[in-house]
Each structure stands twice: as structure tokens, then as C-alpha cells.
Design a protein around this nucleic acid. Structure first.
Lengths: 134, 134
DNA sequence: TTGGGTGCAAACTATTTGCATTCGA
DNA sequence: TCGAATGCAAATAGTTTGCACCCAA
């Protein structure tokens, strides 16, 4: 994604496009991926940029609030950020720790429970944990 | 659940029934609930027992491995242990932080993606995040 | 008796925070 | 210019670990 597109994307989400945010978004949206804060810090700075750890956390919190990325809580030790912005679910390989996307259309949730008056579903999270071991 | 039943339950899961494990299990399985390690530590000791924090963590790790409880990763700051041993899903109220069970039968997963050769589903995790705010 | 279990305190690590500095508009 | 954003270091908090002591079998 080129710089002007990134700036536009940030602005569409009411995010002031600072140098750091543009660099982080540029790194994130190269492709759909699942990244930890540390991954992002390393990845962005490996490209020759200079972004601090605190800014990575601030920015990812902001991006999450604004719906640019989704937090995936799979591993108790760190949060992963999912840069795949389309509707999808996850398959988590418990042996390798790998996390893969599953197209929304591949899992059919046929019925959903009744929710309290006025409540609405913000997010539907499906994680299949799989293993190849006996 | 009475003590002899708890001992039996632990033994069935290849867990040596020590005093601490019996007390923790007794506290956990009073009813289906979602508890953090801290909740468990406080709850068990409030009943006049004496179990250390390290033992709570050790024990919950063991109970999880042996399938007596399930970890629910919802909140980035702590792990919740789900003592409901029947098949079910979760509804998480993002406003209040409350976590509720949904009967397995209330959500129908109609189809599941193809998995790699030899892989099997260990666990199916569904969390609906709901909100009552506009 | 003895190997597994427990408790304590210290260590660890992801994340958050306070605050002075810098930047975008 | 000026409030928002950033960076650094210190603080926080859940969880893990090392190790001496204890207990279930």
C-alpha cells in the first residue's frame, strides 16, 4: 500500500497521520498477518524507521479502538494484532503456535442465543484449536 | 460436591489428591463459574484453608492440562478458568466485563473448514462480544 | 523412605504510565 | 502557536521460577 493510501486510510478512521503511525500502518498492511507488539516494533525499525515501544503500544491501542486491526487473544503472554480487515475466524495450531485465518464463509453459525434487551453483538470470535499430535 | 467425590474426580484425571488440590477443586466446582487465579486464591483461603499463590498457579495449570477446567482468554490482563465442564460457548459483555455461558446447542456451527492431514480439533472456542451501548 | 508437591520470595515480562520534549495543523 | 503525539524510563501486575521444606504413598 502506498503512502498516500495509508494517509487516506488513517484519516478515514479519524486518526491524525503522524510519521510514526504511517510507518506502523505501512508495515502492518503489507499483507494480512498476526503480529505482536514486539514484532511490530522490530519490523518497523528494521525498515530503518525510528518508532519507540510506547508509541507502538499507543498506536495499536488506537488502531484497535478505531477498528483498523483486531486483537486476538490466544496466547496468554502477548496480544496479537490481526491485520486482516475482512470478516474471518481463526485456526490455532497448539503444537506450533501458528495462527491461520479461516474464511468467514467456511464456518456457518446457524443460530445465535437470545441476547438481553438492547444488547448487540460487537464482535464474533471463533477459534478452533487444532493439534496434529496423537 | 463432597470430598470423596472430589478425590475420585482428581484420581480419574491422574491427579494426586493433595490437601491443596482438594480444597481448590472443592472451591471451583461448587458451581459453574469463571475465576481468575486471584479469585481462587482469595476464595479458597476465605474458607479458612491455606493455599499459596504459587500452588494456585501450579494447580490450575495442572487442572487445565488434565482437562478439568478450561482457560478462557478474554481479558488481556488475566486468565479466567472456566469450571463448567460441559460443552458451551461464551458471551462477553464488553461494558461490564461479565462473562456468561451459552449452551452449546444455542449456537450451531454448521460447517468447519478442512484441516491439514492428521490434524484434529482440540477445542472449539466461540466468544460473542456484546455491548448495550449505542 | 522418597519423589512429587508446596510455599516463599525473587525474577520475569508484557504492558502502562508520568512527564518532558517534539510535532502537525 | 498549542494541544496532541512521542520517547524514555520507571512503575505495574500477572505469572513463573529457584529452592528449601514437607507430605502422600
Amino acid at each position: 500500500m502506498e503512502r498516500s493510501q495509508i494517509v487516506k486510510l488513517l484519516q478515514q478512521h479519524d486518526i491524525t497521520p503522524t510519521r510514526q503511525r504511517i510507518e506502523i500502518a505501512g508495515y502492518l498492511f503489507q499483507r494480512p498477518q498476526h503480529l505482536s507488539a514486539e514484532n511490530i516494533l522490530e519490523g518497523v525499525n528494521a525498515e530503518g524507521n525510528r518508532v519507540s515501544r510506547a508509541t507502538v503500544y499507543n498506536t495499536m491501542g488506537l488502531f484497535t479502538d478505531r477498528g483498523l486491526v483486531r486483537e486476538v487473544l490466544i496466547d496468554r503472554e502477548r496480544v496479537f494484532y490481526d491485520t486482516n480487515r475482512s470478516n474471518h475466524y481463526h485456526v490455532y495450531d497448539v503444537d506450533s503456535g501458528e495462527l491461520h485465518d479461516v474464511l468467514h464463509s467456511e464456518i456457518q453459525i446457524a443460530s445465535v442465543p437470545e441476547l438481553p434487551e438492547g444488547a448487540r453483538i460487537v464482535d464474533t470470535n471463533v477459534i478452533l484449536r487444532v493439534s496434529s499430535k496423537a
